[in-house]
Simulated scan of single mutants.
Amino acid sequence: MRFALLRQRPGALGGAENTLLCLSRELIRAGHEVTIIAAQPRPPVAREVLAGLNWHRVPVWPGKTGRILGFAVNARRLLHRSRFDIIFSLERTLSQDVYRAGDGCHREWLRRRQPYDTTLGRLHLAGSPFHQTLLWLEKRLFQDPRLKLVIANSRQVESEIRRHYRVPPSKIRVIYNGVDRERFNRFRMSELRPGAVGSQKCDFQRSSILFVGSGFRRKGLNFLIAAMAERRLRQCQLLVVGPGRTAPYQRLAQKLGIAGQVQFLGPQTRVENYYAVSRVLALPTIYDPCSNVVLEALACGLPVVTTSANGASEFIRTGENGVVLNRPDDRAALAAALEEFVEQGMDPRVQESAEAAVAQLSWTRTALQTLSALKDLSEF
């Protein structure tokens, strides 16, 4: 059979991109023809790993809104000129048989962020062409009669799609993201700890709390810095790994008198090094479909403090391998949870519980489960 797989930037790093790569590999191994439709040139990894993979680049329009709308429109034009048996989209597009909702539900994200926005911020969202375009594409996608199957990467996302768009349960399958078991595993962490961070100038004599992610605002970095000012965490170090504007958060740390406790390390290609030297991962996110960072940290034996708005919280057993908070801005509860697991982070029982929670996850398993779901649509 002929498969078209749609993703704007397949060369990026994330759950959707890993799913795309592994699913393509399994489809090719099964003898199917696979074409990637993207907005970027074919990356070297596709040539090295996926021999026989077809690649079509479609043009997009300028600007953030132009990119998402241009990809949707131009991908549909290409699909109308081609013949595919199954169109599998990992984006909000205009023509698909299967949609993997790896980016979550945009309508739910806007709902969840409202309590933390200013009045001006809410007015901006209401008039934003970017957000309105995403909402239009999302609604059209879920109401498309051609859509046969939706794959959600957590039960949280499944629930959101059913609630906002009335998609019947029979059309939704939950398939979690995978974990790279070679990079992220508890036994490798003990090997990485001596000199794990290379030339980075970090103070690891103090108990380290780790934050990893892009989109600092959505992932609650301001709430985390505020919690670090609590007296019981004054002896701890916060390591912030990821790209983004740090100036507002540096000013907040300075204002709270904890600038010396917070280190901004920027994006890191070997994030496992930071799991190895930390006691607990903190991600007080406002909204996250299913954070890969949480799954990776658990696989490394690192306890996690996050919120119930994160699909990855489905792997956390409060008190055993972390804490799930009801609100990201509950400073006292966040500080108490971090204090608890700074103390327990090196306990083998906690590490074993963390690792066991995600022991079944792998990218190959994610791809094979997706392949099984596609077989249920049509015998091939």
Rank of each mutant, 00 (worst) to 15 (best):
L94C: 08
E91I: 14
T118N: 01
R92S: 11
Y116N: 12
T93G: 07
R112C: 00
S95Y: 07
W109H: 02
R111T: 06
C105A: 09
T93N: 11
S95G: 12
C105R: 00
T118I: 02
L120W: 04
L94Q: 14
L90S: 10
S89T: 15
D117T: 03
R92P: 07
H106I: 10
V98R: 06
R111F: 06
Q114C: 14
R112H: 01
G102Y: 11
E91L: 15
R112P: 00
G121Y: 02
S89Y: 05
R113A: 10
R107D: 01
T118V: 01
R100A: 10
L90A: 08
T93A: 13
L90D: 07
Y116V: 05
G102R: 14
H106A: 04
A101P: 01
R111P: 02
E91C: 15
Y116A: 04
C105F: 04
Y99S: 15
W109Q: 12
Q96P: 07
L120Y: 01
S95A: 15
P115S: 13
T118R: 02
Q114A: 14
D103L: 09
D117S: 08
D117C: 05
P115I: 09
R100F: 13
G121Q: 12
D103R: 10
D117N: 08
D117M: 13
R112T: 00
S95K: 06
L110S: 03
D117A: 09
V98C: 08
